[in-house]
């Protein structure tokens, strides 16, 4: 009897902790959301905690008048789709080739790839190379240099190695199929699950990238969404005229703050829409990687 109640206590503690985990995970985002649609006065008074108060959509109305946000969206969508297509086009065939055990020099090539995971020349020489190739301030600089992710390449290689039986390839070869034909007709369709996972990794990496964009893109017309929102968010009221009254200043500060909340939310929208569809793949992706470890 006593042991059962002890067990129940443990379960209760676990449940309570997990409720806390769920709240801590989601609350910062939730707070930003409710703050973005509340009246700034209510926020400042600490009355906005769980639900929006004094519904106010002014911040969003203002955001719709900011062309740079939509420009950022457009750029990010363009760059990300370009980058994903290039990533897959470069890495999937390469992963397939690396998986073929009969390939002469396979070990050497493999080592060559892995070395780059652990040693790099650093940010500056890479920047100078991109510069020397005339790619500075071009979306290409954002897309091309990072198109081979060795970790993802290894995932691909392992998948091709483990899920496509050698006998299948041998049979196809005996029948006179070229590697290219085998790859296109048999290997590629079999690899759709891993390709989906790699595409997902690649989408999130490029969509979320900040430093790469900041390094290579200077022209505001080329800015990614991340750059745009960071510029809006780090804007302070310091650029205001000095001759305004305290009340006016407070009002403006409150308004800019409200807008900042709204910007974060606008930037999160694609993610929130995509999340239910992709989260399953994320778990799968981690598991695929774990098999290798």
């Amino acid at each position: 009897m006593k042991r059962i109640s002890g067990e129940r206590a443990v379960n209760m503690v676990i449940d309570v902790l997990l409720v806390l985990v769920a709240i801590v995970s989601i609350y910062p985002i939730w707070y930003v959301l409710i703050a973005s649609v509340s009246s700034p006065m209510e926020i400042a008074a600490g009355r906005v905690l769980f639900w929006p108060k004094g519904l106010n959509l002014a911040a969003y109305r203002k955001l719709f008048e900011m062309p740079q946000i939509w420009m950022g969206y457009k750029n990010s969508i363009l760059y990300t789709s370009g980058a994903v297509l290039l990533d897959l086009a470069v890495m999937v065939p390469c992963g397939f080739a690396m998986a073929q055990r009969t390939l002469p020099g396979r070990k050497f090539l493999n080592t060559m790839f892995v070395i780059t995971m652990y040693f790099s020349g650093g940010m500056i020489p890479k920047f100078l190379i991109v510069n020397a190739m005339g790619m500075l301030n071009s979306p290409l600089a954002f897309i091309i240099p990072g198109c081979v992710n060795v970790y993802n390449l290894i995932l691909l290689r392992n998948y091709f190695e483990s899920s496509i039986p050698e006998s299948l390839l041998d049979a196809a070869r005996v029948d006179g199929a070229s590697f290219t034909r085998f790859f296109a007709m048999i290997a590629l369709p079999l690899a759709t699950p891993i390709i989906a996972i790699i595409a997902l990794f690649s989408i999130t990496t490029h969509w979320n990238a900040y430093l790469g964009a900041q390094l290579y893109l200077y022209d505001p017309k080329l800015f990614t969404l991340q750059q745009v929102i960071n510029n809006i968010l780090s804007r302070t009221s310091s650029m205001l005229r000095e001759d305004i009254s305290i009340e006016e200043l407070t009002r403006i500060t409150l308004e800019t703050n409200l807008q900042k909340y709204a910007v974060v939310i606008v930037a999160c929208i694609p993610l929130v829409i995509a999340y239910p569809f992709v989260q399953r793949y994320f778990v799968k992706g981690v598991m695929v990687g774990a098999v290798k470890g």
Partner: peptide, 28 residues
Amino acid sequence: HRELYLFMLPAIIVLLIFSYGPMYGLVM
């Protein structure tokens, strides 16, 4: 296996330029 090397070529070129290339930073 010539086709397979061709498959790997783009990735190798990218790595040579953007991963091995910057190792000249050692000199810089």
